[in-house]
Structures are given as structure tokens and as C-alpha cells.
Amino acid sequence: MSSTVIVINLFALSCLIFAFVKDRGKAKKSLAVAVKAFFRILPMVFIIIVLIGLLLAFVPPDEISGFIGEQAGFGGILAVAVLGAVLYIPALISFPLAGSLLQSGASISAVAAFITTLTMVGIFTLPLEIRELGKKLAFLRNGLSFIIAIGVALIMGVIL
């Protein structure tokens, strides 16, 4: 078992023990919330994992890297950034997908751009954001987040 798995599980376990010591009732309630959330996200995990299996089996790596690999350049990064901004995939299940893309020839920049716009820019939630926070703030935040995502992606491509 990898150290990441051990660290994450130990962290969860110590939080849980601390919670039970502090407030039994609340800790039990948290566990109920966790179980519910787990079963809510599980079908999405199944779907994304089946798609990853098919993706890696059917799409040859050089095809993926042609679209969003090192040689695809800035256009590829921009394309996946737009895709990330438009799509509405829960961030939690986007990481296995991103990992599989990286494994099959996508560049670090493209994957970083995808994850960052997916989480920070929300075309899907934009109407709600405008209603709550106003047009100016919502457009500025989403627009600048998109530019930031590209910036973060390009820097990561250079340093990693």
C-alpha cells in the first residue's frame, strides 16, 4: 500500500477519534453524513472509471498526446481549459480522469489547465453566482480565474 493511502487514512482516523472524544453526538452525525456522501458519489466513480478503462483501451496514447500532449502546444491547453470551464464534473472524480490522461500522453500543462478551470471557473453555476454576487464580481472572478488557470498550467509545464 502506498504511503499516500496510509497518510490519508491515518489523517481521517485521527480526526474521527478527536471528534468522538470532543462530541459523541456530532461525531455520529458526521459519520452519517459521510456514509450518505459516499453512496451519492459512488455511481459517479463507477461511471468515470468505466470511461477511463474504455479511453485507455480504445484511444491510442499518441492520439491523445496529439490533441493535448507536449506537441499540441498552446492550442491544446486552451481547448482543454475551455472544456474544463464548461463541463460540470465533481472535482473529486475528475482527478482519476486527469491522471489517466497524463498517463496516456497528455502534457502536464494541459492536465493542470483542465483541473484548474474545472474547479475555479463555473459556466454552469454562473447564473447563480451573478444572482448572488452581481454581474461585475461574477464575470471578473470567472474571467480572471480562466486566465489564472492558463498561467498556472504554463508555469507547471515549465517547472515539472
Binding site: 490519508i8 487514512n9 471528534a19 456530532k26 458526521s30 459519520l31 459521510a34 456522501a37 466513480v45 491522471g99
Partner: peptide, 23 residues
Amino acid sequence: NYFLEMIKILPAVMVIMGLFSVF
């Protein structure tokens, strides 16, 4: 492989989320 990687940490992640959202 991807499912195994996910299922090893998903329950823990959900517990952490549940704890913070209640506390």
C-alpha cells in the same frame, strides 16, 4: 486499478468531509 486506487481513500475522504461539515 483506478477503482482500487479510488476505493482505498474515498471512505477516508468522505469521513473528513462529514466531520468538517458537522463541526
